[in-house]
Design a protein around this nucleic acid. Sequence first.
DNA 1: TATGAATGAGACTTCATTCAT
DNA 2: TATGAATGAAGTCTCATTCAT
Lengths: 196, 196, 196, 196
Amino acid sequence: MFSGEDKKTRIFQVALELFAEKGFANTSVDEIVDRAGVAKGTIYYHFKGKDDLFLMLMKSGVDFLNEAIREAAVGESDPIRRLDTIIATQVRLFIDHPDFYKVLMSEIWWLEARQHEDLQKIRKSYLSILEEAIQAGQTAGALRPDIDVEMAAPALFGLISHVTLQVVLDSPKPQFSRAHRAVTDVFLGGILKPRA
Amino acid sequence: MFSGEDKKTRIFQVALELFAEKGFANTSVDEIVDRAGVAKGTIYYHFKGKDDLFLMLMKSGVDFLNEAIREAAVGESDPIRRLDTIIATQVRLFIDHPDFYKVLMSEIWWLEARQHEDLQKIRKSYLSILEEAIQAGQTAGALRPDIDVEMAAPALFGLISHVTLQVVLDSPKPQFSRAHRAVTDVFLGGILKPRA
Amino acid sequence: MFSGEDKKTRIFQVALELFAEKGFANTSVDEIVDRAGVAKGTIYYHFKGKDDLFLMLMKSGVDFLNEAIREAAVGESDPIRRLDTIIATQVRLFIDHPDFYKVLMSEIWWLEARQHEDLQKIRKSYLSILEEAIQAGQTAGALRPDIDVEMAAPALFGLISHVTLQVVLDSPKPQFSRAHRAVTDVFLGGILKPRA
Amino acid sequence: MFSGEDKKTRIFQVALELFAEKGFANTSVDEIVDRAGVAKGTIYYHFKGKDDLFLMLMKSGVDFLNEAIREAAVGESDPIRRLDTIIATQVRLFIDHPDFYKVLMSEIWWLEARQHEDLQKIRKSYLSILEEAIQAGQTAGALRPDIDVEMAAPALFGLISHVTLQVVLDSPKPQFSRAHRAVTDVFLGGILKPRA
DNA sequence: TATGAATGAGACTTCATTCAT
DNA sequence: TATGAATGAAGTCTCATTCAT
C-alpha cells in the first residue's frame, strides 16, 4: 500500500529510468505504468500528460543542479576555487545521476522547437551561473583577460558532460576523480605544455 | 520530373532538415514526403525504411567529417598545427552544417541502446582520430605529459560542439573565427592566467 | 461549508448549465465537480452516476413543465383560451430556462435508442396534453374539423421550440411577447391572408 | 475489392447510419470501421478525424437540401405555390433520409459551442431561403402583412422537422402526404376555424 | 455526509510500412 | 523508377466509476 506521494514519486523514478534507457520518444506510457506498477490513469491523474511528466522531471533536476551549485559555491570567495567547486559539484552530479543527464543532454537540442520555453529559460539561467563565475574570475585578475566569457560557459558545459559521459560509458564504477581532473586540467590549464 | 537520383537526394536533404528541426522521432515519413514533394512509396523504394534513411544520413555525414579531417591534417607534420587544423575543420563543418550535427549530438546518447552499432563504431573511430592527434602531440613533447589522453578526446568533442551550438544559436550569421578562437583558447591554453 | 441539500442543488444547477453549454456527452463529471466546487465522490453519493443525474434533471424539468401547464390551464374552460394559455406557459418556460430546453430538444431524438424509457413516457404524456387540448377545441367546434390532431401536437411543440430558440439566440434579453405572438399567429391563424 | 472512392463512400454511409442510430458521441470509430469493413487507418486517410467526418457529412447533406429546394422552387413564380413546393421538398427529404435529419436536428443545438462555424453559416443560409420565400409572399400580398417573417422561418423549420419525426416514428412506411398535409394545413391556414 | 486518489476499459489518433499498379 | 490508397499495431489520453477514509 502506498500513499499518494509514493505513487507519484515512483512514477517519477521509473520515468527517469526509462527515458534514460530508451529516450523520451521511445518510452511509452504503458511501459512506465507497467514498471511502476500503477494503473494507466494514475499517470494522468498526477501529470497533465507525457510531456508534462517529462518537463517536471527536467525542471526538478535542473533546479536541483542549480541549487547544489549555488550552495557549493556560496562559501568560496576565491574565484578559482569557486570555479573548481562548481566543476566538482557538476561532475559529481553527472556521475551520480547519469540517467538524468543523459536525457537532458539528448533533449536539450530540441528545447527551442517545442513548448519547452521553461526549460530553455532554465538552461540559460544555468549557463549564466557558469558565466558569472568565469566573469568574476576574470575581473579579479585570476583568469586570462582575453577569454571570451560568453563562449567559455557553454565550453565548460560541453566539456564536463562529454568527459563524464566517457567515464560513465567506460567503467561500471565511474571514477569521479579522473573525470574531475580531466576537466580541470583541460579547462583551467589547457593541454599545451607551458613555456618555461 | 526528376531523375531517380534527384529524388533520392531531395529526400536526403529534406530528411536532414526535418530531423534537425524536430528530431528523428518527431519527424514522420509523411512530413518528409510532403516537403520533398515525392510520393510515400518513393522513400521505401530508395531506403529500407525510416531507420535506414537515418542511418545512411548519419553514416554519410560522419564519413564526410572523417574524410575532411584526414584530408586537412594530412599535410601537417607539426603536431600542434595538426591539432589546430583538425579543430578548425570540425568547427567549420559544425557551422556549415548545423542541422546534421544537431541530430548527431542528440542521437549520440542512445547509441548503445539501439541497433546503431554502425554509428557506435563510427563514433569510436572518430574519437580515435582526435585521440591519435593528441597522443602524437604528447609524444612529440608539445603537450603536457600529464594530460589524460582518453579523456581529452571526448573533452575536445564536447567543447567544440557546445561552443559551436552557442555560436549558431546566437547569431543568424555564425562566426567561424569566434568559435574557433574560443575552442583553441580554452583547449590549448586553458583559461588560467599563465604565471609569469 | 454547505449542507447536503445545498451541494446536491448546486450539482443540479451546474450540471444543467454544462449540459446546455456543451451537451451531455461532452460534459465530464470532472467539469461538473470543478464548477460546483464539490469533490468527485459527492456526485456519486447523491446520484447513481452521470446518467442518473441526467435523468433526474430531465425528469424534474418535464414534471415541472407538465405541472405548470396543467396549473395554468385548469381554470380555462374556453378551449381556445386554454390552448393559448398552454402555449404562453410553454414559451415562458422555454425563455426562462433555455438551458434546460436546449438539452431536452437535443436528447429527444435519441429517446428510443437508449435506456430513456422514462423520458420517452414523459414525452408522450406531454404531447398528449397538447393533443387533448387540441382535441377538445376541435370537439367544441372552435378548431377546424379537418386538422390532423395527432400531427398537430408535435407540430406545436416543434413550432414553439424553434421559434423560442431563435428569439433566445437573437437577443440577450429574449422577448416573450414576440415569440408568443409569432407562435399563436402561425399556429392559430396560419400565415395565409384570410380571404374576404 | 473496392476502389478508393468506394471505401470513402462506404465510410460516409455507415457513419451516417451509426450517428443516426446512436448519436455522434455514442458512436465509436471502431464501430464505423467494423461495419464499413475497412481498417481503422482508412478513416484517417480519408478524413482528418471523427469531427471532420461528421462535418463533411452534415455539409454535404445540407448542401444537398439547399440545392434540392432551390431547384424545386426555381420554376415557381406564384409565391404560395413556391412556398408549398419548398415545404413539400423538405418533407420529402426528411422522410427519405430520416437518419440524416435526426442527426442534424440533434446536433444543431451545439453548433455554436464548437468549431462548427461552417455549419452554423449553412444553417443561417438555409433559414434565409425560407425567409426569402415568406417575405416574397408577403410582399406579393398573398400572406398576412402582420406575420413576423424572421420568426416564421424557424417556425416552419421546427414544424416540418417535428411533424416528420412523428410520422417516421409512427409507422414503418412513413406517409409523405400525411406529413405534408399536416404541415401546410397548420402553417398556411392555421388551426382556427375560419370565421364566416 | 463527503472526499479525492486511483483505476482500467476504451476512446481517438498516428504512423511506418506494404502492395497492386 | 515511382505511386498513393490502405493497413493495423501501437500510441496517448479521457473519463465514469470505485473505495478506503
